[in-house]
């Protein structure tokens, strides 16, 4: 089995410290045991490259939305550059905390439960809509719901709140994606990350992209959420372009920005 391998790829970051560290230790052990080079991979770049290969997308605007990330990314001059992002909390984090406020279960995931319940809502309530250029902010929206929940509960059902929340939050995300498309002159969009599984977000994005005569790449749910394959694939691209991580430098970091990685495998 090891003789079929060329290198060992592991996630260098960003992420939670403990899991990153455990995997790094295993990767170091395996690479020394099997005498293979080690390649440290950026989790976000993994998502992007997996999305590009699965969808056969050459040069998209990437909306990366998950529990810990909200970024609008485009490639330029050997980097994945972040054009827009959240200036406070990530969208998935906000959805999870909202689910707790309205008392939704974590099984199978808060985001999924919001999505299902939102289908039963129809009474729209105006929530704070905060877009700053290509950036968004969600913390005020969460505070608003936390403070107003008792008042809102008199006039709106939990389903109405889920519905209004999705409509508001996803409109913000679609808007900054559209602004980045206009700014960068790019007509393809790729959504990656766990929140990208939400069908309403996909639907809204599709309407926007088609209005512009562009193309939305539909991501397979299995590869939208975190997966090992994306780390292997992004690591392979780095490895084939001469990048390896010496064991002495095989650290992990919770804060590893997408634009720190040299992307030398693209034109």
């Amino acid at each position: 089995m090891p003789d079929q391998l060329d290198c060992i790829c592991y996630t260098k970051g960003p992420g939670m410290g403990a899991p990153l560290l455990s995997v790094a230790i295993v990767a170091r052990v395996l690479c020394q045991l099997w005498k293979l080079p080690l390649v440290g991979v950026n989790h976000c770049v993994g998502h992007i490259e997996m999305g590009r290969v699965v969808c056969n997308s050459k040069d998209p605007i990437i909306l990366y939305v998950s529990g810990g990330n909200t970024q609008v990314i485009a490639y330029s001059m050997s980097r994945y550059r972040i054009f827009g992002e959240t200036i406070d909390i990530a969208v998935g984090n906000m959805l999870d905390r909202f689910a707790r406020v309205v008392g939704l279960s974590n099984d199978p995931s808060p985001g999924y439960n919001i999505e299902q319940l939102a289908k039963k809502g129809n009474k729209f309530v105006h929530l704070p809509y905060i877009v700053k250029g290509m950036d968004v902010s969600f913390s005020g929206l969460l505070s608003f719901i936390e403070k107003q929940k008792d008042v809102l509960k008199d006039t709106h059902t939990a389903a109405d709140l889920c519905f209004s929340l999705q409509e508001t939050v996803f409109s913000m995300l679609v808007e900054i994606t559209e602004r980045a498309m206009a700014h960068c002159n790019i007509n393809e969009v790729l959504i990656v990350g766990g929140v990208g599984c939400n069908e309403r977000l996909q639907e809204m994005m599709k309407i926007m992209v088609e209005e512009r005569g562009g193309k939305l790449h539909h991501m397979d749910e299995r590869y939208c959420i975190d997966n090992g394959c994306m780390i292997a694939y992004a690591g392979l691209l780095q490895f084939m372009n001469g990048f390896t991580t010496p064991v002495s430098e095989s650290t992990v970091t919770q804060r590893f920005r997408t634009d720190e990685v040299l992307v030398n495998w693209r034109e």
């Binding site: 330029s76 827009g84 200036i87 950036d135």
Partner: peptide
Amino acid sequence: VDLYVMERAFLSTHP
């Protein structure tokens, strides 16, 4: 925040 938004757009557009 207005300047922050500009800074980020500026540096990503003009590396």
